[in-house]
């Protein structure tokens, strides 16, 4: 299990990275945490001629919040996100999801941008980015462009990134007043790829323009965005399920309606250990659990 021969480049600036990408095109691969790429190379299913190591491009790291937008650099490690108070304040969904990502060692090394660019169908960040309507910033020698998370993930390991492009950072709208996030996942072992997972964000409040003071377990759901992962080639927004809950209080009948709407949203793909029927069942169970927690549990 030895990788095929490759050249290794360690640029210090984004501009250098882009120059190398422009030169080598799809013969090159960008390496950040290497948590998926290195094993893939070692089993020789990937054999890039050139590895461009961005770990020393400082401008790609970091978490900042400004004017209602959270900006996360592509090179930010999962563990940094898990520990970030800025993230907890502006995108609590990410703080909830981070502990579910693999294991400590992988979280210390793996990066936010790397996970999005890898686009494993059972990984957490793509679903979170989809729910949060994140904007993914790409740059190449040809210029910069922004892609909405909903358009970014295209298939198993396939994204909108062109071979000469680099994912630099992601912008996420800060969570609004009255909004809450929820995250739940079922995996065979702690840290495994999810069999099924779900990420949710939405507002719980009065339906009218003038809200009254709400106790936990009261109010109606608004502006819900629900994304499942591990069920398809990319994160699936459960719009029908969300519609069934929109403007509704969460009770047994509305939850049931949302669960019954899930087949409209997707028919899960089977995987090695779980049939489509089992995944569909788990999706219903997880939806019930995550919504109940979101509705009755901790806000924000």
């Amino acid at each position: 299990m030895k990788a095929a021969r490759f050249d290794y480049i360690r640029p210090r600036t984004v501009q250098e990275v882009l120059d190398h990408l422009a030169e080598h095109g799809d013969e090159a691969k960008v390496i950040a945490g290497g948590q998926s790429l290195v094993p893939t190379m070692n089993v020789r299913l990937a054999a890039p001629a050139v590895l461009i190591d961005i770990n020393h491009v400082e401008e790609l790291s970091g978490i900042e919040a400004d004017k209602g937008t959270l900006r996360i650099g592509a090179l930010t490690r999962h563990a940094e996100i898990a520990a970030s108070e800025t993230v907890a304040a502006h995108a609590p969904l990410l703080s909830m999801a981070a502990p579910w990502i693999a294991h400590e060692a992988i979280r210390n090394r793996g990066t936010f941008g790397g996970s999005l660019a890898t686009a494993d169908p059972a990984s957490e960040w793509p679903a979170c980015a989809t729910v949060l309507d994140a904007t993914i910033h790409l740059v190449s020698a040809r210029g910069t462009r922004q892609v909405a998370a909903g358009d970014f993930f295209q298939g198993v390991y396939e994204t909108a990134i062109e071979p000469d492009e680099l994912l630099t950072h992601v912008e996420i709208p800060a969570i609004g007043e009255g909004y809450r996030a929820g995250f739940s996942e079922f995996a065979r072992r702690k840290g495994d790829y999810a069999s099924v997972g779900v990420a949710v964000q939405g507002r719980v409040g009065a339906s009218g323009a003038i809200g009254r003071l709400l106790k936990r377990g009261e109010g109606r759901l608004h502006d819900l965005r629900i994304a499942f992962f591990g069920v398809a080639a990319r994160p699936m927004l459960a719009t029908a399920a969300a519609a069934a809950l929109e403007e509704q209080p969460l009770d047994e009948s509305t939850l049931k309606a949302a669960q019954e709407a899930l087949p409209t949203d997707f028919t899960p793909m089977e995987d090695l250990y779980m049939s489509s029927a089992a995944k569909a069942h788990l999706a219903r169970v997880l939806l019930g659990r995550v919504m109940t927690t979101l509705y009755h549990g901790e806000g924000r």
Binding site: V43, L45, D120, P121, A122, G155, V156, Y157, E158, Y193, A232, A233, M269, E270, D271, L272
Partner: peptide
């Protein structure tokens, strides 16, 4: 051996 987890997704796509 190593690809079966995601094969269906890839094949369908």
């Amino acid at each position: 051996g190593v690809g079966s987890r995601v094969i269906q997704g890839v094949a369908s796509k």
